[in-house]
């Protein structure tokens, strides 16, 4: 049985494995990989368009406290927020978030604006 793929099987025997020995050999992300959302909080204007468009309700913005919060456990990496951001402060980075031992959110605080230079 399987005369036809004998050649292929022999070739596999002599070539490198098709799989990766993962933790030893690190995974190479492509530039497009959707790992996690990051916010350049300085450019963010806290307009909360991303909060309204997020299909997974993973984002929250508090204008009083000047914070932008993401719940990485709800985020589905759909990039909707990155596309709708009017200031392009949101971006999708290829690295996945590290393994966590408890569910937590990530909050970024926008620094107070410096007074306008005269």
């Amino acid at each position: 049985m399987g005369i036809q793929i004998t050649g292929m099987a022999l070739k596999n025997l002599l070539s490198r494995p098709a799989t990766k020995l993962y933790p030893v050999e690190p995974q190479v992300y492509t530039s497009q990989t959707r790992g996690h959302v990051d916010n350049n909080i300085e450019a963010c204007i806290l307009c909360s368009i991303c909060v309204r468009k997020c299909p997974a309700t993973a984002l929250a913005v508090d204008k009083e406290a000047r914070t932008w919060t993401i719940n990485p456990f709800s985020c589905v990496q759909c990039m909707t927020c990155v596309r709708v951001c009017p200031r392009d402060s949101l971006s999708m980075l290829p690295e996945y978030t590290p393994v966590a031992s408890n569910m937590s959110t990530r909050t970024l605080v926008k620094p107070e604006e410096k007074p306008e230079e005269a």
């Binding site: 049985m1 399987g2 793929i5 492509t30 497009q32 990039m79």
Partner: peptide
């Protein structure tokens, strides 16, 4: 036919690679 199964999925991996290269998922 385990060997055939492995070869099919090995080829499939390349299509998934194309997806990751072009869309990120």
């Amino acid at each position: 036919f385990e060997n055939l199964f492995m070869q099919c999925w090995r080829l499939r991996e390349r299509v998934l690679g194309i997806f990751e290269q072009t869309t990120g998922g």
